[in-house]
Amino acid sequence: MPTPVSSSSRFQLPSGLKLMNAALGGWTVLVFAFLYLPIAVLVIYSFNTSRLNIVWEGFTFDWYARVWQDTRLMRALQNSLIVATVTTTASVVIGTVGAWLLHRYRYRFSHAIQTLIAVPMIMPEIVMGISLLIFFTTLSVELGFFTVIVAHTTFCFPFVLVAVQARLHGLDPSLEEAALDLGATPIRAFWLVIVPCLKPAILSGGLMAFTLSMDELIVTFFTSSAQSATLPLLVFGMAKVGLNPMLNALSALFILATVAFVLFTEHLRRMSRR
């Protein structure tokens, strides 16, 4: 595995590449602007006085104060986070190990397994939701967090698996062999040598799984109970009476908290290095 970027080379880029790099940087800035444009609008609308929040009426901080008191909203957010976190963990484990096994071994049914893995991505949400509900009901599994998480993991882990497979493609096979020659068990070799190489893909896959789980509506509707209802269920129901700015405030706070968390962990890491 080559080291990601040799720092010496970055400062000696030929002029053609330098130009290309600048162009790529400019493009990236534009794309980030595209990604964050609606977020900026969303944040602005979180200060709107209008409860229907469709047209701008006036400025207020009120929604930020009220969002904490809305127990149903906070509960739904909490449920969403529980579901998304466990789903992501399960998806990363299943997806990474699955991708590695399918890469490492030639199973008799490799093609069939590979195809089955892609099926949850194409299966219409409604079909998956109803069939899983029938399945759980037949087995008398009570609806709750367990059923939501199982359903979410089923459509999230293929994303991790596909991302990790793309990374495994062309991986130097001598890496694992070297570890095995040094006396590591296959599982240790996987953990110590392969997983670190896969880290960028695992991170990508995990982020996709988390995002998909946070946003899922139909499958969640059919597999959840009153106690495990997630944020999207609440939000879609609110469209009827108006998506009040409290939801924007919640989104804004959530983004702010995430960004703060990322900066904070980085800060901690730097502190501990010193």
Binding site: L35, P38, T211, M214, D215, P232, V235, T258
Partner: peptide
């Protein structure tokens, strides 16, 4: 990815 951690409908 962070922009997508807001609700689909709000976005």
């Amino acid at each position: 990815m962070i922009p997508f951690w807001t609700s689909f409908l709000i976005r």
